[in-house]
Computed example of a mutant assay.
Amino acid sequence: MLPGFQSSRRDFTFGPWRLSAARTHIMKSARAERLAGELHMPSLPEMMFGDNLLKIQHESGFGIEFNAADALKCVNNCQGMIKVACAEEWQESRSEAEHTKEVLKPYDWTYTTDYKGTLLGEALKLKVSPTTDHIDTEKLKAREQIMFFEEVLLFEDELHDHGVSSLSVKIRVMPSSFFVLLRFFLRVDGVLIRMNDTRLYHESNKSYMLREYTSRESKVSSLTHVPPSFFTEPNEISQYLPVKETINEKLEFPEKLDPKPTVEPESTCMESK
């Protein structure tokens, strides 16, 4: 963490919504070890921001939030996965690496997650259903005043100095809408680049949010036509990564709104799609 870093929490009201963004220090080792045990993982990302979050909550209690612990619950920690195969490929390409054997563990050491957020509420929750509707990107390009903006890092790992694995979320609030981008970015040097994006969009006159999940991936050997400088810039490299999966969902508000908020989280991984 940068010298002089101060924890912060920012709140913003958007109609009936309360938007909260918290940025704090890296999780302490003792707590990280406990959480790793609960998640059945040998270790957590090097920089684990367990108290960082972005929360979007309606005055009636339902909503959605984004946090690191729930995101890691969506990491597949079983053996025999394509991610482990990727680790073996990495081992072959870097047989001289000092930490290679440390990296090959019976879990997804890249921390790849298909997390799309944690639903809030108990009696009242957002109803998730497939949709053919799409986020209107032209509206997002319109020059509209940005009333609130925040970016929160949830976790990051440098993969023993051979790449990066990170998860971050940012929100932009305009007078008529808000837009969220949750991005998982993975770069294994010389092997693979992967990006899982979740976009969430709500217009103030609508009774729903639109959520779009897109997974992109490419072997580095297939990116010889791309400037290497783009490999470290997610916004630049994304256009060169083939789309592997896309899921469009509508998150509809409850028909009956309860004035008393309740918050019981339910994380959204791909198995709940």
Rank of each mutant, 00 (worst) to 15 (best):
M1L: 15
L2D: 13
G4H: 08
G4P: 08
G4W: 03
F5E: 07
S7I: 09
S7D: 15
S8N: 13
R9S: 12
R10S: 15
D11M: 11
T13H: 11
F14H: 07
F14C: 03
G15H: 06
G15L: 11
S20C: 07
S20L: 06
S20V: 13
R23E: 15
R23M: 09
I26R: 08
M27I: 12
K28P: 02
A30R: 14
R31W: 02
A36Y: 07
S43C: 10
S43E: 13
E46H: 05
M48G: 00
M48C: 07
F49I: 04
Q57V: 08
Q57T: 11
S60Y: 07
S60E: 05
S60V: 05
I64M: 15
N67Q: 13
K73C: 04
C74Y: 01
N76G: 00
N77R: 13
N77H: 13
C78M: 12
G80C: 08
I82W: 14
K83M: 13
K83Q: 15
V84S: 15
C86N: 11
W90G: 00
W90Y: 11
A97W: 08
T100H: 03
K105L: 12
K105Q: 14
D108N: 08
Y115A: 02
L120G: 06
L124D: 11
P130N: 02
T132K: 09
K139R: 14
K139H: 12
L140A: 04
A142T: 12
Q145F: 06
I146A: 08
V152F: 05
D161H: 08
D161L: 15
G163N: 07
S168A: 14
S168C: 07
K170F: 11
K170H: 13
I171Y: 02
I171F: 01
V173P: 00
S177N: 07
S177E: 07
F178E: 01
F178N: 01
L181S: 11
F185Q: 03
G190P: 02
I193P: 03
R194W: 10
R194K: 14
M195N: 04
D197S: 03
R199S: 05
L200T: 03
Y201I: 01
H202T: 02
S204D: 12
K206H: 14
S207E: 15
M209R: 00
R211N: 09
Y213R: 09
T214Y: 01
T214Q: 07
E217W: 00
S218K: 12
K219N: 12
K219C: 05
V226Y: 02
P227S: 11
P227R: 08
P227A: 10
F230I: 00
T232E: 15
E233A: 06
E233D: 14
P234F: 06
N235G: 09
N235A: 15
E236A: 11
Y240C: 04
P242H: 14
T246F: 00
I247M: 06
N248E: 10
E249T: 08
E249R: 04
E252P: 00
P254V: 06
T262R: 09
S267A: 10
C269M: 01
S272C: 02
S272L: 12
K273G: 07
